[in-house]
Design a protein around this nucleic acid. Structure first.
Lengths: 136, 136
DNA sequence: AAATTAGTCCACAAAGTTTGTGGAGTATTC
DNA sequence: GAATACTCCACAAACTTTGTGGACTAATTT
């Protein structure tokens, strides 16, 4: 399961995608519309900014906005950033790989199956972008 | 990611599947061979027994063994049992469903995408069994 | 029947993660 | 320089994970 933080991040990014043409959006507006605790959302958006997904402007007329065009930001990128590995086990992860201590990966049934699961998931989340998060 | 507990459970079940014809297997043997903390493994196996996946026998010649034939036990069942939901978000889960508070499921982009991810994952784990966990 | 073997059960504890909150500071605009 | 809005850091409560310890029960062997 994705953490609440991740779910909040997706809701917020969906909202910013909707409002992409409208310039900076207040944190407080996102928090209210998407029912996200304000201060928690602050942390999340700041993290997304540091990861180059968002940018912000201070002072009057300020707020957060997408740094890149929403169709250029993959859902997979956001998951890895906010939630961590997409794979079910570390020895199968592409971005968070860790060697398995108690099995030989070449001959491990679990390894093989989890690789399939990973690829099935990636085939979706690597091909969806922030645009796919918007309500319709 | 699956918890360590889940990974231990899979390792143990894979081992019991290998040794399916050999009668009861000692917890201590599984723990040693699969490098799982003994007492932690006790808890896991007991849980699997209560869920009717395993059975056990006490005293000399005792140990744990699969209650059903390994090809009859789906991987999906084990994940749900030991790890919890397979879906990435609760409002998309079949077995652990929870309503989403801040979106209309019929018009939510996230909901739609996560349904696809769920189905892609299920198409694998609902069609694999303990047999697929065995090393080869 | 006693000893040995091996699972059962319960409680607890250390560590880590998640989910926040509070408050002072900084940049920008008017 | 006042108001606005993001920034940064620290901390805390709650929960989950990952175990451990010890007494108990059931089955077998001698």
């Amino acid at each position: 399961m994705l953490s609440k933080k991740s779910q909040y991040a997706f809701k917020a990014l969906g909202y910013l995608t909707e409002k992409y043409t409208e310039g900076p959006i207040l944190i407080s507006e996102i928090a209210k519309k998407k029912k996200i605790p304000l201060k928690f959302l602050e942390n999340i958006l700041l993290e997304l900014k540091k990861a180059d997904i968002l940018d912000s402007k201070k002072g009057k007329g300020g707020g957060y906005f997408l740094k890149k065009s929403p169709e250029k930001v993959k859902v997979a990128t956001i998951i890895r950033l906010v939630n961590g590995p997409i794979s079910m086990i570390p020895c199968v992860s592409l971005y968070f790989y860790e060697r398995c201590k108690n099995c030989n990966e070449k001959h491990c049934g679990l390894h093989e199956m989890m690789t399939e699961v990973r690829d099935a998931t990636l085939s979706i989340v690597e091909n969806r972008t922030l645009v796919d998060l918007v309500d319709y």
